[in-house]
Design a protein around this nucleic acid. Sequence first.
DNA 1: CTTCAAATTGTTATCGATATCATCTTGTCG
DNA 2: CGACAAGATGATATCGATAACAATTTGAAG
Lengths: 358, 358
Amino acid sequence: MKNEEEPKDKRLKPGDAQKLTMAEVAKYVGVSAMTVSRAFRQDASVSEETRKRIMEAVDALGYVLDLSAGSLSSRRSGFIAALVPSINNSNFSDTARGMTDALQNTGLQLLLGYTDYSAEKEEELIEAMLRRRPEGIILTGGSHTARARRMLVKAGIPVVETWELPEDPINQVVGFSNSEAMSLLVRTLAGQGYRKFGYIGGTTARDTRGSQRRSGFQKTVEELGLGPGRMISFGVPPITMEQGGQAIVSLLERWPDTEVVLCVSDLSAFGAIMECTRRGMQVPRDIAVAGFGDYEISSICHPRITTINVDCYGIGRQAAARLLDTLHTGEATGDEITLTGYKVVLRESTDRNGAPTA
Amino acid sequence: MKNEEEPKDKRLKPGDAQKLTMAEVAKYVGVSAMTVSRAFRQDASVSEETRKRIMEAVDALGYVLDLSAGSLSSRRSGFIAALVPSINNSNFSDTARGMTDALQNTGLQLLLGYTDYSAEKEEELIEAMLRRRPEGIILTGGSHTARARRMLVKAGIPVVETWELPEDPINQVVGFSNSEAMSLLVRTLAGQGYRKFGYIGGTTARDTRGSQRRSGFQKTVEELGLGPGRMISFGVPPITMEQGGQAIVSLLERWPDTEVVLCVSDLSAFGAIMECTRRGMQVPRDIAVAGFGDYEISSICHPRITTINVDCYGIGRQAAARLLDTLHTGEATGDEITLTGYKVVLRESTDRNGAPTA
DNA sequence: CTTCAAATTGTTATCGATATCATCTTGTCG
DNA sequence: CGACAAGATGATATCGATAACAATTTGAAG
């Protein structure tokens, strides 16, 4: 019944993939493979005329450079590895974009992985990445398994840790103190007269930045003599918008007189605010809420959310830039800490003068 | 002044990166390199005892497999390339996650790139990706430059186009009709009694899924005899939340009696709703709004947003699964179209019975 | 005690580019 | 005009693993 005669035009013919090599391009042009190789790099010495002829042949034949072969002999993979906790989080995808942009036109390509906030997953990924012999690696945070650290050091490539200030950096750092940033937010709000502070975050273990924010909160509230903060832990980090909503409900059940609630991220803050609105409470009139991260949503939603703006994109961009520096200067730069900025963005959700809308 | 005697403990010593090779591991254990190579693959025939000894040596020496060398000789790169328009968009990052998950434990790694909704950027990226000799490639959408198509066909690897149903597929497709999905939404809302439809989208050219949604809207509104839709184009796609807000303002200025506004995505719908709220209009009492994509925000915000739920994660997962199939069956599978589901999710933002809150 | 198949390990060639050094032009300058 | 530097190109070895085939060992069956 099968009609073998049907036109198999578009079908993938195995033979189609004529493995074209540089040597064949070279033969076609009448030069050596080495010259073709040179023609692909701008620095190399090939006469303009030859390069032009070669490029025409490349076009005509449809040759595509094979970097896996190239990187073996040149001992340069052309990869930069980057690990982020999650890519569905726009803070981190902004960071990834910053890295991609910084690597533009450098001949380096980003090899991206998601750790899912897990140090074990990170360890696995680090090994998987190192097998590709990246020329540098960018990590999120400073908590790694012992084996991960060992592999990184042994790899002998520059490492940049981001988004935090690790106590014991492996190499370079591009980030900020999450604890101090949260502290600043607490002080700012306390300066506006708030006294009864609540906090919503995930159950602590996995998300180190989250726990740093939490401890910054706790420490500062106590320093200000405002007693122990009212802490709610809800769900495995990263906590969702929905969990933010659930969390604020339990927080207010337990401590109904809370004046302002700080959240580990804008996403949970947003969920919290929406849940309050839905329950007929007005933010900030009845309860003030603040987030962390300055996600797009926070400047758009109603009421707009007070938050800490973090230079996510800049973290990625600078991390990649530091790496490039180190690669160029021959890795002698040593370790540095590059601090990235953050700032409190006061918006409607903590406005002391009450009702968000008219 | 420089103290050369300082302990350079953590500093990157160039010599640290003792290029360990398989041969050295082999010598250490007293076997051949080939046996070490075998020990790394589960299928290969190595006695358990030998494998154990080798793995202990690998651990002791800190050897990490070099896949760039491996892929050259095995002619299998272990890469799957994937191009998405943007990674800051959670719909696409869900798709990326679906692909990553599907590739788990297959020994294949995702090589991810962002096209920024540009066919030229896509062409560049396709070339960059092909230089790594991926074993398959996943694209978003069906619009590619002529050269991109040529390169893809020539590469002789399976190609999966996603998120749309291209008229002339290169190879396999995993997606749905954006136009029909939008059409379904229009019909559903018309069925609820809405008559005066508005539409908010980006200026069309770049985002092909966006323009398909737009044309689905326009066609259906006319088919239903509701006259030409009221269309506002605002900003270069992907349009932001903020642009959604600006767009609905101009739409309502021009056609104040509009009953329901459909938006190219939930993000613009959200921005539109928030802007309305801010201006004292109630959604859906004064104006109904619907989105597209069922982003997390839409089920959390207030009012909750009516939208089209798309199986973003499933698109990624199935695209990768199709690719794996094709790779296993030796590429003979030929072309197929895998339809992914979508459904209308009716929520408060288009509720005919009025006021969102009590 | 053979014999032969299966299991285990080794040897050699090779993947496709690039580093390195060698060769050959060309042109400038004393 | 000779010498030498700069520019362009080529020949060969090599990067570090794996494919393919060969060799050896082991064990079960006859």
